[in-house]
């Protein structure tokens, strides 16, 4: 967005006209001390090496890329790929589930009911993130109620059991995938809802008046207008999801590990801040790369669409 603020002569008194950057100082300090410096330290540490038997210290005597070689050769690379796959799939699933919900919320629900629906979406947040994730262990365990339900016959499945053996989904990547979508869903629904809610009714009506059907209106008017909100939602879900390790640690078992857990592992088990930092930096770079590729695809795609739709007017 390129909004410029006009320089109307201020009617305020002179002493109040402090330089504008002063207002930015609190957030500037915040970012420097709590973001820039810590991340810079992590980056610096990633070039060092662990000092044997001295926990938490990094030897920066001869900075090198050895830690990155370790990360990119061998086990971490597989884990990084799996993490990226889980995150991308999780983000796409969130989008697919959230879009109808947000659409429903923005256009189909009356103002009173809207409050109720929003409240329902918010309520799970009152429970601790950890407990919500732990709850999946109860839901998915082989002797749990879901498993029992699937193994018993019901009238709506004509008395047939849907499964003959207990559900073996806990401690697998599927369990992580399910819980990750569950945990991050609201982060997708809310930006989508806000974006769709901002789409002016007049524009949708105009589209209808000009002969577009519902599908066309959605695809060519509503969706493009909500574009920025969708992108925000995608980033909001994808970035924290890639770094998530709680879900994987609780539900993933050996098969569903995520790279975030490996960072924690390096810091807390290996007491190796150098390797932990290198993995963390690799994760940041991977996320940026994936986002970059996605942004490029998005731009290229929208350009193609625009070109295909452009109408040549010959006079």
């Amino acid at each position: 967005m390129t909004a410029t603020i006009d320089a109307r002569p201020s009617r305020r008194r002179g002493w109040l006209r402090a330089p504008k950057f002063l207002l930015a100082i609190p957030s500037f300090i915040w970012y420097v001390f709590l973001f820039v410096i810590p991340v810079a330290l992590v980056v610096v540490n990633s070039f060092g090496r662990k000092i044997a038997n001295v926990p938490g210290k990094v030897d920066l005597g001869s900075p090198n890329f050895d830690r990155y070689h370790e990360v990119l050769s061998g086990s971490f690379k597989t884990l990084l790929k799996q993490t990226m796959f889980t995150s991308l799939l999780g983000t796409v699933l969130c989008l697919i589930i959230s879009l109808p919900v947000a659409y429903f919320l923005a256009f189909k629900v009356g103002p009173k009911a809207k409050t109720a629906v929003l409240a329902l979406l918010m309520v799970p947040f009152f429970a601790n993130f950890l407990l919500r994730t732990l709850a999946w262990r109860i839901v998915l365990q082989p002797s749990g109620f879901v498993s029992n339900f699937l193994q018993s016959g019901h009238w709506f499945t004509f008395g047939q059991a849907l499964r003959s053996s207990p559900l073996q989904i806990l401690d697998t990547r599927s369990a992580v995938q399910i819980a990750i979508v569950y945990n991050y869903l609201p982060l997708m629904i809310f930006p989508l809802w806000v974006a769709l809610d901002r789409v002016e009714l007049h524009l949708r009506e105009a589209s209808k008046d000009l002969g577009a059907n519902r599908v066309r209106t959605f695809l060519q008017v509503t969706l493009p207008l909500a574009g920025p909100g969708i992108v925000a939602g995608l980033i909001l879900v994808f970035v924290p999801l890639s770094g998530d390790y709680v879900t994987a640690a609780l539900l993933g078992g050996a098969k569903g590990n995520m790279i975030g857990a490996e960072v924690a592992n390096q810091y807390f088990k290996a007491q190796d801040a150098a390797s932990g930092s290198a993995i963390a930096v690799s994760l940041i770079i991977s996320i940026l790369l994936v986002l970059g590729v996605l942004a490029a695809c998005f731009l290229f795609g929208s350009k193609l669409v625009k070109r295909s739709r452009s109408v040549k007017v010959v006079l």
Partner: peptide
């Protein structure tokens, strides 16, 4: 014992973990 093998043991553990996940 926490000795000179500690780093190596953690590395083995990390590799086993990665292999188990792959």
């Amino acid at each position: 014992a926490v000795n000179s093998a500690q780093d190596r043991i953690v590395k083995i553990y990390s590799n086993v973990k990665a292999k188990a996940g792959g």
